[in-house]
């Protein structure tokens, strides 16, 4: 099985998409960080001031920046699956490993590893931005306390699990464009609305991104009121449940299908 996982990673790292996605993900995280840093301490109109750059609250908020990267990991997961159908390399893959369940498992494991890698990359970028910012502002850097480890773990776990969502969705849909567009619409439109509009948050908190937000929730009053979220443990369970469902979908749709 380790050979198969290595083969899947090799597939990913011998084409260009992974580093394009990595760059876009870092760019996205960077923009989020820039906004967070730029607006720190700013007084919203009529509202309370956002926490200043030296505060723990600022650091907590900044550390969540990497969470937005999960969509890129999901797209990578989608491509890991749909690319095989698009270029018909699935034939070669199944010829060398006719027990298809093993191929799916190897993809899921490889996806998890890549998700972790992306999550860690986002954290490193965050560290590079947050630590100097806090020091310059004369604050005390919090890394192992103040809820920061939980947020870091949340960012990495979310990233890893979104890779599985992508692989499952890709196995189900198989058409690369349709799967990618579907994922983007879901994350940026459907989930954004469900988690942002208070009346819909009863549903929204059970969506993948709603559950993911509960892992990295911080008490920052942005003037919109605190969002209605699950407790972190429940959010984690919901995310893992989604990942299992997507993994199951990936297996069931791949094992029996005729490759013509």
């Amino acid at each position: 099985m380790t050979a198969l996982v290595r083969s899947e990673l090799q597939k990913l790292f011998t084409t260009r998409l992974w580093w394009v996605m990595l760059l876009v993900m870092l760019l996205f995280t960077g923009i989020t960080l820039a906004v967070t840093i730029g607006f720190a301490g700013v007084q919203a109109q009529g509202g309370p001031a956002l926490p200043g750059r030296g505060t723990l609250e600022f650091q907590q908020a900044a550390w969540t920046a990497g969470a937005g990267s999960s969509i890129f990991v999901m797209i990578l997961g989608i491509v890991m699956m749909t690319g095989e159908y698009r270029y018909q390399t699935i034939t070669t893959t199944f010829l060398s490993t006719p027990r298809r369940g093993r191929v799916v498992t190897a993809k899921l494991v490889a996806g998890l590893l890549v998700g972790v890698l992306f999550g860690v990359a986002a954290l490193l970028l965050t560290a590079a931005a947050v630590i100097p910012t806090v020091l310059i502002a004369g604050g005390e850097v919090a890394l192992l306390d103040g809820g920061v480890p939980r947020i870091m773990l949340g960012v990495v776990a979310t990233s890893a699990l979104y890779a599985l969502f992508g692989i499952g969705l890709g196995a189900l849909v198989r058409n690369q464009i349709a799967a990618v567009v579907g994922a983007i619409v879901w994350v940026f439109v459907v989930e954004s609305l469900l988690t942002a509009i208070p009346a819909l948050q009863d549903v929204g908190k059970f969506t993948p991104s709603g559950a993911a937000q509960s892992l990295i929730a911080v008490e920052v009053d942005s003037g919109f009121g605190a969002p209605d979220l699950l407790p972190a443990w429940a959010g984690a369970s919901v995310l893992v449940a989604y990942a299992l469902v997507f993994a199951l979908v990936a297996s069931l749709t791949t094992v029996r299908r005729d490759i013509t």
Partner: peptide, 25 residues
Amino acid sequence: AVLEATSFHPGRTARDHLRVICTAA
């Protein structure tokens, strides 16, 4: 087995294509 002529990822080199399979097999 040699099936359709097009079952390669266009962005991967010939050597990498074979190496991926070597690893899996």
